[in-house]
Write a protein that binds this DNA or RNA. Structure first.
Lengths: 347, 347
DNA sequence: CTGAAAGCGCTTACAG
DNA sequence: CTGAAAGCGCTTACAG
């Protein structure tokens, strides 16, 4: 089965390759009638322009690379990618996904000309990312950062500070005096920002910082379980705020095992609004992250850069939402019946 | 910044473009000393062959397309993709991900020459998939199906029947006589296979099929909640097997609301071993699906096809594992402390 | 073992 | 508004 090429289309409609190419690329200065003829020929022959020939001859690749840290996969990647893809596919762009050793891979993708632009979820290793950003800039390849804003690179982040601050205010309304914060790994920007926002919110409400205890986990459920145990050995806080929902879940499991009731004996809150948050017992009070919107915004922004435009803001921050359920001691009328829309499917 | 090309490399080491190309592609019949010279020049100039030029001139694109059904994102996609990528990146292959309207997109990807091979998670719409498969075959593009085996296309699936059968045997050991099966959408192959295996396993143990009730959900948690309520109105089974964990979770929530205890008043089991399964109360008995291995196997198989080989089997079936916890009425010594390894991270 | 040359299928100044 | 021709950066018979 031989390939259909511009040549074939040109012959079929009695025009030149150049004209056919112009029609395909929607250039101005083509007679309407000509456009018609070309389009008919394209349909008739079932012609699809070869992507590599286009890219090689100076056109775009029509591909964006999405770089996410691998190693431990994160369920929210699904939601994020969905947002990215939604926008990309509408714009006729393809998504090249890379997680495994993406820093090395990114360079190859760039140098081999495989993508027009990049979306990069940079969480750690700032030095190595810097080098990558420099290379991208040198090559004139647009890129959008998701996670940690660096210098004046275009970035999209989530309002960690604001979310944690809102939760702190809520805790303050409950009147808690002794509070535990279960942090993520040292130096992790999300954990740091949440701690910062939490402290800020507490102090705004006149909270005595001496009542704040900090134990460190690694964002995993077991680490929350262990952190809670560690804290229990030195005393008993009135409330716990974990830097993510999974550690909050771990803390709840520890409390149950220690014979303590949530929220009667201790309030618990998390961050993320993970799938299970509303289904644990009691339903978890948390701060919701807009992962889907994060993906959408990242891709919309990249698209704008690709077409030579600029984003409205160099550093876009998406709002987070305090989601009050029952684990903080509030009344919660949720999931009864459970919410009807349920975006996740496991089968 | 001008692009470094084969021309530059050839000049730098005093050889022809053809020879440089041969070295890059690891062809035989090149003098060892020559290989050395070329490699040195490549390093010195920081040369990366342009992917499009290679593809256009008859080489491979070095890209595989992964097509997954979108609409509702599934957290297990993360795990599956991780497996795919692990193998792909080791083989120097890039992954083009597509979920949004992938059936249309697949054709474009194929005709535009954007991928050497395809991994397709085909769940429904058999007709449209057939047409795609025919096109792929006509073009000589290798592809691997993940999900529903069709004809003699290469496929990788999970042992739904065996897993459900093992669970049925386990239920039989508990001596349950009246059992509810919460199915997925009508015609969904996973749900059908699980029901088939469940019935098979029960009948092997002499279970009276009159004791089996079936209610249909849509794999979501709320649908499990509703299905359980529906069943409760007409009687009370001794045990429930849901076609996935999320519906099992919904059933548990319904039972709690109805004042029934799990497993004392009713046993519950699911399918998947989703993240939350071991953390709900009581920990959920379920059948584990090897999603990571599914991705790995799909990619390994595709790689083999790409290099002109054949898979060991046309239809590969990966084993599932009965994972007994407490919701069926068994003793469970789990998560105390919680399992230390925890592949998922939400932050 | 190596090179000169054709060709992959497009796009894009340059003319007209 | 349209066409002839050069060129993008490789690979691959074909010679030698």
């Amino acid at each position: 089965m031989k390939n259909v090429t511009v040549e074939d289309v040109a012959r079929n409609c009695g025009l030149s390759r150049a004209t056919v190419s112009r029609v395909i690329n929607g250039e101005a200065r083509v007679k309407p009638g000509t456009i018609e003829r070309v389009k008919r020929a394209i349909d008739e022959l079932g012609y699809h322009p070869n992507a590599h020939a286009r890219a090689l001859s100076g056109g775009r690749t029509g591909t964006v690379a999405v770089l996410l840290r691998g190693g431990a996969w994160r369920p929210y990647y699904s939601t994020l990618l969905e947002g990215v893809e939604e926008v990309a596919s509408r714009a006729g762009l393809h998504v090249l996904l890379r997680t495994h050793e993406y820093l090395e891979a990114a360079q190859a993708i760039l140098e081999e000309g495989r993508a027009d632009g990049f979306i990069i979820r940079n969480l750690d290793e700032p030095e190595r990312h810097r080098r990558l950003f420099d290379r991208l800039a040198a090559r004139g390849a647009p890129f959008v950062l998701v996670g940690d804003p660096v210098g004046d690179c275009q970035s999209i982040t989530i309002d960690n500070v604001g979310g944690a601050r809102a939760l702190a205010h809520h805790f303050a309304e409950h009147g808690f005096r002794r509070v535990l914060f279960i942090a993520g790994p040292e130096g992790h920007i999300d954990s740091n920002d949440r701690l910062y926002g939490f402290k800020l919110g507490l102090s705004e409400k006149g909270f005595d910082q001496a009542g704040l205890e900090l134990v460190r986990g690694d964002f995993s459920t077991p680490s929350g379980f262990n952190a809670m145990r560690e804290s229990l050995q030195s005393g008993r806080p009135e409330a716990v705020f974990a830097a993510n929902d999974r550690m909050a879940l771990g803390a709840m499991l520890q409390l149950r095992q220690a014979g303590l009731r949530v929220p009667e004996d201790m309030a618990v809150a998390g961050f993320d609004d993970a799938y299970f948050a509303e289904y644990v017992t009691p339903p978890l009070t948390t701060v919701r992250q807009p992962f889907h919107e994060l993906g959408v915004t990242a891709m919309v922004t990249l698209e704008r850069l690709l077409s030579g435009g600029q984003a409205n803001s160099r550093h876009i921050i998406l709002p987070t939402t305090l989601t009050v359920r029952a684990s903080c001691g509030c009344r919660y009328a949720g999931h009864n019946p459970p919410i009807p829309e349920d975006r996740f499917e496991t089968s």
